[in-house]
């Protein structure tokens, strides 16, 4: 109950942010919320199952292209919904093929299929529409975009928690630990994995649809940018995908870090990201949020205690 109230207060405070008329803060908050939404939705599926999905960029890009095609023809909420649904359809199709695979194979194939979509769209745009990119007019106000992204991110957080508590969430974790065992308990692993994968895809697609208007001009290389999925995976892994705090902390830290470092030290920024990922994989396999900080604190204080005595 208390958690619900905290969540609602946080959303309400964030919703009031456009009142501060600072484009810098608004744009930073928007990036932060986008990555929070992406990381939370990624963790929803990849956290419990330990399937390293690299399809996020494809979902995001498909959503963005739905906006490019639908903006002006459809009302704004419908455009965003359409973006999410396009990603779900794609996730369902590739899920049927790839969710039988495990480990590195799954990661490579999801990445490859994402690239396939990117190049297919490039081809279709060139041959049928005679264009390499699209300019978006009639874009909604930046406050509308911000509230849309906030709503999607908040919905992702709520879904993450509710799904994790449901029997599907339990089943997904069971599959991650031992798929055959889960099957003997009556779980249909393929069905549960597909549900989780499609659910996670909807958020990435919807975020892509909402964020597309920020660029005003999009082409496949900007919206299917692999950097989107790498950053999402990084945030989730460093933060820890198994608790809701993980991807949220990760998204906040990375957005701040990238905002300050990318401008001043562009190369050092990428190096730091790489080092952080290595450190977190080696020493924090469950991320910052999954680490037993209390125990570390006790260890440190216990070790220091005898030194102070004499």
């Amino acid at each position: 109950m208390m958690r619900n109230i905290h969540f609602l207060i946080a959303v309400a405070l964030l919703a009031a942010l456009p009142a501060i008329e600072s484009p810098f803060i608004q744009s930073m908050a928007l990036t932060c919320l986008m990555f929070a939404g992406l990381a939370v939705s990624w963790s929803m599926f990849s956290g419990p199952t330990r399937y390293l999905s690299l399809a996020t960029s494809a979902f995001f890009g498909l959503g963005a292209y739905c906006t490019a095609w639908g903006l002006g023809k459809l009302p704004w909420p419908a455009v965003v919904m359409l973006g999410g649904c396009a990603a779900v359809v794609f996730a369902f199709a590739i899920g049927l093929i790839t969710l039988r695979l495990r480990g590195a194979y799954f990661a490579v194939i999801t990445y490859g299929l994402g690239e396939l979509v990117k190049h297919s769209i490039t081809h279709v745009e060139k041959t049928w529409f005679g264009t390499v990119g699209r300019v978006m007019t009639e874009t909604p106000s930046s406050a509308t975009v911000y509230w849309t992204v906030l709503a999607i991110a908040a919905l992702a957080v709520w879904t993450y928690v509710a799904f994790g508590r449901s029997r599907y969430g339990h089943a997904l974790r069971g599959i991650g630990m031992d798929e055959e065992r889960a099957a003997t308990l009556g779980v249909n692993p393929m069905r549960v994995k597909l549900i989780g994968f499609c659910l996670s895809a909807w958020f990435a697609g919807a975020l892509g649809a909402a964020m597309a208007v920020r660029w005003t001009y999009i082409d496949p290389h900007t919206v299917f940018n692999p950097f989107i999925v790498f950053q999402t995976v990084l945030i989730s892994m460093v933060g820890g995908p198994l608790t809701i705090g993980g991807p949220l902390i990760g998204a906040l830290a990375f957005s701040l870090l990238s905002e300050f470092l990318r401008l001043s030290l562009p190369y050092l920024y990428m190096i730091i990201l790489g080092v952080l990922l290595i450190v977190s994989v080696l020493y924090l396999p469950d991320g910052i949020a999954g680490y037993d900080w209390k125990r570390l604190w006790e260890k440190i204080t216990r070790r220091k205690a005898p030194e102070e005595k004499p």
Binding site: R167, A171, R173, G174, M177, D178, R181, A182, V187
Partner: peptide
């Protein structure tokens, strides 16, 4: 499922 609670194991 070692990383799940007793209750979660039973519920599954």
């Amino acid at each position: 499922f070692p990383d799940m609670s007793v209750r979660e194991n039973l519920e599954l």
